[in-house]
């Protein structure tokens, strides 16, 4: 240890450089001169940084910070970008500011431009619940079946989207499938079997189930479960189900009741966007049967 490492220096035959003279169990280091290129790059990176510091908000100065010569503000930049896009949409989007749906659906050129945008709006906001083809799913109604809870004309749909169903909006649409837990289990079974047979179109209309249904259910679900009363109760005769129309699921529905929730969009979408979506949704049964929503644009 008394030796200085100079005593151990040797020349590396491959590179021709000296070693530093340290040796850790066989590991040595070369005394290669500092490569200039590393310094050049460090200076370049530093120069880039200095330029960025001068142009952009950068160093803290106590309670404030340097603003940068460009005077950029990320909030304002984001807003400006948004406004620019909004201005680009204005030409056609502003046509939707009034719910004059008859005129709007007659303007095929406008629809060709607007419907693809509506399809994306639907995918981004609605598909998570209603399905990517608006086909619905357990707990969420299909919007392409042609059978409506509240009505499928654009104005009604616009209202549904604006206030929601059983939502937090003060004007929300309200509906409820009440619980029939007071009904005798045997009766529930009977009516459930009748309802389960409705979609096939071969239900026995003189059965005890039919009678129970007429007495207890038809006020909301319509005569023979045909629906169409537009009070939030679905038709029970079609093939599209919210919760399910097998006997077992129906018994749960009867025992516990149901109250689906459709959020209000008044605070999240502009009135123009809501009208656009309303027109799009109301046309789904004709345009999108089975397709991916995009084809809605194809059919004028």
């Amino acid at each position: 240890m008394a030796q200085t490492h100079e005593d151990h220096r040797e020349v590396d035959p491959v590179t021709g450089h000296d070693t530093t003279g340290h040796d850790w169990g066989g590991i040595k280091e070369l005394n290669t001169p500092f490569p200039k290129i590393a310094l050049v790059f460090l200076l370049l990176a530093f120069a880039y940084s200095v330029v960025a510091w001068i142009l952009l908000p950068a160093w803290p100065t106590g309670r404030s910070h340097t603003r940068g010569l460009l005077g950029l503000d990320q909030g304002q930049e984001a807003l400006a970008g948004y406004r620019e896009l909004e201005a680009g949409r204005k030409a056609w989007m502003s046509r939707f500011d009034k719910p004059d749906f008859a005129a709007l659906s007659a303007d095929h050129a406008l629809l060709a431009e607007a419907m693809p945008a509506a399809a994306r709006l639907f995918q981004d906001n609605c598909a998570a619940c209603h399905g990517s083809n608006a086909q619905g799913g357990p707990g969420f109604p299909a919007l392409n079946s042609g059978h409506w809870l509240w009505g499928g004309d654009p104005a009604t749909v616009a209202e549904t989207i604006t206030v929601g169903i059983n939502s937090a909006d003060p004007n929300t649409r309200v509906s409820q499938m009440p619980s029939f837990d007071w009904m005798a289990i045997a009766d529930r079974q009977t009516v459930a079997e009748y309802v389960a047979s409705l979609p096939s179109g071969k239900a026995d209309q003189s059965s005890a189930g039919a009678k129970l249904f007429a007495d207890n259910c038809a006020s909301c679900h319509g005569e023979g479960g045909k629906g169409g009363l537009q009070t939030g109760a679905p038709t029970l005769t079609d093939q599209s189900f919210i919760y399910g129309q097998d006997v077992e699921t129906e018994l749960t529905t009867l025992a516990k009741g149901r109250q689906g929730q459709m959020p209000t969009w008044a605070a999240r979408l502009s009135p123009e966007e809501i009208n656009l979506l309303a027109l799009y949704v109301s046309r789904l049964p004709e345009t999108a049967a089975g397709a991916d929503g995009r084809s809605a644009a194809a059919v004028p």
Partner: peptide, 20 residues
């Protein structure tokens, strides 16, 4: 705040040199 982002960005670029 933007200024913290600028510092993070510039130091990240300088960091490349010792990394390489």
């Amino acid at each position: 705040p933007y200024w913290v982002q600028t510092l993070g960005m510039t130091f990240s670029v300088m960091l490349l040199v010792p990394s390489w």
